[in-house]
Computed example of a mutant assay.
Amino acid sequence: MQVVERVLADLGPYLEAVERELRQASDDSGPQMREITRHMVEAGGKRLRPILTLLSARVFGEDLEKTVPIAAAAELIHMATLAHDDVIDEATTRRGALTVNSRWDNHTAVLAGDVLLARALVMLVDHGSPAIVRIMADMIRRMCDGEIEQKASLNRLDQTEADYFDRIEKKTALFFAACCESGALHQGAEPHHVRALAEYGRDIGMAFQVVDDLLDVSGEAEVVGKPTGNDLAAGVITLPVLYLLRQDGEAGRRARELLREAPYTRAQIDEVLALVRQNGAVEYSRKVAEDFARRAREHLLELPASPGRDMLADVAYELLRRVY
């Protein structure tokens, strides 16, 4: 059985309950907010954050019903960030559907994101604990900090890998860590087990973002239905491009010349992408993602044996399958 099928078979009823929670999140709001929530929920998504929350809880217990609101709150936070991100990025579609800012307007999208975020925090207060609320609130703070840092780094060729890793940790990895940590805490896990799952989530999040950035330059993005070069067009310098820029040879020199002055034309972006694919940047970035995924699996060895632990290990492998 494939990883996705195994996870769905094990978590199916609980993921269905998460979907119900998401659909009901704005039941006490006005008609437009209810419509916006339905629109975002029906657009779908991987539901990775609820899955990580539930699987982390699954390591320590079989009855996950009480953890469903925590998992749903995590996805509501994610939905809120997407509504805000699409305004920032001036995006018009996501997952094949119109974005909230496109179907309605920027003003409405920002407020809708705020409503979803507030709803998530209420759910965490009602069903979680002060520790879980603090974990999620601090993660949101650091995510916003990462977004600000990314904006400040746009088109900057002097940034380092350390800058890149710090940014993706804040923007992506700490959310994965918070989901794993919260799921474990909600099932009463011991502190050292909670820490191990937080580290697992952080490393899985790092691997996930490196893979996502790799797909944007490797030419494999067409497989998942997205054009390549979106990050570069927006001025976001990701790991494969950083690797190319620091090369001393002709490829590095040419890349620095092409990216010296923004905005970049489509021809410039395509030439840089070709250089990335031809000069070891894809292989290097893939190895970095593999190393993060390997470290994530090592953290799981600190946990008691369970179906939840096994599926979390499988998730680490599955993330890497996207680049092979």
Rank of each mutant, 00 (worst) to 15 (best):
A162I: 12
M136Q: 07
T160N: 07
N101D: 05
S129I: 01
R103W: 08
A97V: 15
L154H: 14
N155I: 12
G146S: 10
L157Q: 01
L157T: 01
L157K: 07
R156Q: 11
A131E: 15
E147M: 03
R95G: 04
M139Q: 10
A109E: 08
A112L: 00
I135E: 09
I88Q: 14
D166L: 12
M136G: 05
M143G: 08
V100Q: 09
N155Q: 12
I140E: 01
D158Y: 06
C144T: 14
T108I: 06
E149F: 10
I135M: 08
D126H: 01
L157F: 03
F165R: 12
L157H: 01
S102L: 02
T108K: 02
I140G: 05
E90K: 11
D158P: 06
V100A: 10
M139T: 15
L111F: 05
M136P: 09
I140C: 10
L154N: 14
N155V: 12
E90N: 10
E90T: 07
A137D: 02
L154C: 13
D89Y: 01
L111S: 02
Q159S: 08
M139L: 06
T92V: 10
V133T: 13
Y164K: 06
P130A: 05
P130W: 00
V115G: 11
D126Y: 03
D85P: 07
A120P: 09
D158T: 12
T108N: 02
I135V: 14
K151Y: 15
D114G: 03
M123E: 12
M136E: 08
V110P: 01
A112K: 00
P130S: 02
D105E: 13
A97L: 13
M136C: 08
T92Q: 09
D158N: 11
V87K: 01
D166A: 14
V115W: 12
